[in-house]
Simulated assay, not measured.
Amino acid sequence: MADKTIYILRHGQTDYNLRGIVQGGGVDTSLNATGQAQAQAFYDKYQHLPFVKVLTSSLKRTHETVAPFLAEGLDWEQHPEINEMGWGDHEGKAATAKSKREYDSVTQAWVQGDYHAAMPNGESAWELQQRLEVFVNHLLERKEELLLVCSHGRAMRGLMCVLKDEPLKYMNNYSHSNTGLWIAKQQGGRFHLTLENDTSHLLVKEGAQWRSKR
């Protein structure tokens, strides 16, 4: 079980992010122009690092975010275990007052420890945790010392809890921005975070910064 460093990146912006439409694991959108620029900005800052392999979800918005690295010929694997959470009937729809109430009710249930709560026809936190644990156990067994992982907002919130061996009720402690970067270091079979949701790569010459949609 080799010690390793893992760079964990959320995908770049999509039009659905921009418009406040729920994506989830069942909507396979592409990056918009801003998302493509965010992906390039991340690459420009971190291309010098000797990543051994790139691991993404099976959804194309993660593939497109790491495309500049893949163009270099880096080995690439897709892992559906880190797909975005399934939001059921709300996927592909703009948020409404009713759906926001349902979302708040479900996430509050998770905070109270009811991990089987889910949006209508959606995935529960318990189901999310099961697949994330499969992915983390896979990471623990890998021998590479430096990996790049690209996933999704809620999935990454859950992933941070699993990496740190925390209950999922703490998921909302972890914020996420488009191309926000987390760095996790594995030592002795345990992970700790050394960077959380960093978007400094989005700073441009004019001093502006993209404001990613959650």
Score class of each variant (00 low, 15 high):
Asp165Pro: 07
Gln129Ala: 10
Tyr174Asn: 10
Leu139Glu: 01
His138Pro: 07
Ala117Met: 01
Gln112Cys: 06
Gly113Gln: 01
Glu133Phe: 03
Ser151Glu: 03
Arg157Met: 05
Asn173Phe: 09
Glu141Trp: 03
Glu166Pro: 12
Glu144Trp: 14
Ala118Arg: 02
His176Pro: 05
Pro167Val: 00
Leu146Met: 04
Val134Thr: 13
Val136Gly: 05
Leu132Met: 10
Trp182Ala: 13
Asn173Arg: 02
Val149Ile: 05
Val134Asp: 15
Leu139Thr: 04
Trp182Cys: 08
Asp165Thr: 09
Glu145Ala: 14
Leu146Asn: 09
Lys143Tyr: 10
Gly180Cys: 00
Met156Asp: 12
Leu146Cys: 10
Met156Tyr: 08
Ser175Trp: 06
Met119Arg: 07
Arg157Ala: 09
Glu133Thr: 12
Gly158Leu: 03
Leu148His: 06
Arg142Val: 15
Arg142His: 14
Gln130Ile: 08
Cys161His: 14
Arg154Ala: 13
Val134Gly: 14
Ala117Leu: 06
Ala118Lys: 02
Gln112Phe: 00
Leu181Thr: 02
Arg131Glu: 12
Leu132Val: 14
Arg154Ile: 07
Glu144Ser: 11
Gly153Val: 06
Ser177Ile: 11
Ser175Leu: 07
Leu147Phe: 05
Tyr170Ser: 12
His152Leu: 06
Ala125Val: 06
Tyr174Ser: 06
Asp114Ser: 07
Leu140Ser: 07
His138Arg: 05
His176Phe: 13
Gly153Gln: 09
Tyr170Ala: 11
Gly113Arg: 01
Tyr115Gln: 15
Glu145Met: 06
Arg131Asp: 01
Glu166Tyr: 13
His116Phe: 11
Glu123Ser: 15
Asn173Gly: 02
Val136Gln: 00
Gly153His: 03
Gly122Phe: 03
Arg157Gln: 11
Glu141Cys: 12
Asp114Gln: 13
Asn137Gly: 04
Trp126Val: 10
Ala155His: 01
Gly158Phe: 10
Ile183Thr: 14
Pro120Trp: 03
Leu139Gln: 12
Val134Gln: 15
Gln112Ser: 15
Leu132Pro: 11
Arg157Leu: 08
Met171Ala: 07
